[in-house]
Amino acid sequence: MAATDHSRSEAAKQRRQDQLQRWLGSETEQTGSETRKTTGGSGTRRAKVQFAQGAVFMAACSAGDREEVAALLRQGADINHANVDGLTALHQACIDENAEMVQFLVENGSDVNRGDNEGWTPLHAAASCGFIQITKYLIEHGANVGAVNSEGELPLDVANEDVMERLLRAEIKKQGELIKHIAVQGSLLSH
């Protein structure tokens, strides 16, 4: 049994060495090395963990912490920061059905038509989740009901509920009529 414990211990030490090797030269190691400090009287060094501002911003938005989000924006955080999948805080707030955060982000300049890596806009997200209130809000604030994702789908195409489909069809019709009206007005003015 002692031999087994010893081999597990050695395997664990080797995995830790492998982790440290991968960590050396990483972005985390490079930014963290500037903030290390010596603690109390023990003389041990503790690394201060730091996260990229975009990650902190996204986490604060997901937590619904408007005060923290506002503070991060004042410090220069990008309201349209996207994660590796292209999701912005607005996408996530739509997915989480956090109407208050959606409103806060839109009021502070979040791009309502920004697509993720798959071309999904916040409106696609809200429509696919069936969140009527958020969908209406996004449309009222300039969300494009004609936005097409990488699969060629409109928000209407990813909607799963009849109420959502009716809302989006009505908005498409309304915007289509508005575009026709503007085109007619433009052609009358040019003659």
Rank of each mutant, 00 (worst) to 15 (best):
A183V: 09
R114I: 07
A59M: 05
N108S: 09
D78Q: 11
L24R: 15
Q17V: 12
L90K: 14
V49S: 01
S33I: 11
E34C: 04
R169Q: 09
N98V: 03
E97H: 13
T31E: 09
L90I: 05
E118F: 13
Q53V: 07
R114H: 05
N98Q: 07
H124W: 06
Q175E: 02
T44Q: 10
A55M: 06
G152C: 04
Q75R: 15
V84I: 12
T35Y: 01
E97A: 10
D65H: 13
R169C: 08
K180S: 12
E151H: 13
Q50G: 11
A143D: 00
A143Q: 01
A93I: 08
S9Y: 03
G25K: 11
N80G: 11
G43F: 00
V49A: 04
A93S: 15
A47Y: 04
M58I: 15
E177R: 08
L87D: 14
A93H: 09
M164W: 02
K13N: 07
K136Q: 10
D5L: 14
V163T: 06
A2S: 08
S110T: 06
A70W: 05
A126S: 09
V49C: 02
L154N: 08
A159W: 04
D5K: 14
E107Y: 12
T4A: 08
L73H: 11
L87I: 07
C129H: 09
L167N: 00
L90Y: 12
N108G: 04
G76L: 11
Y137W: 03
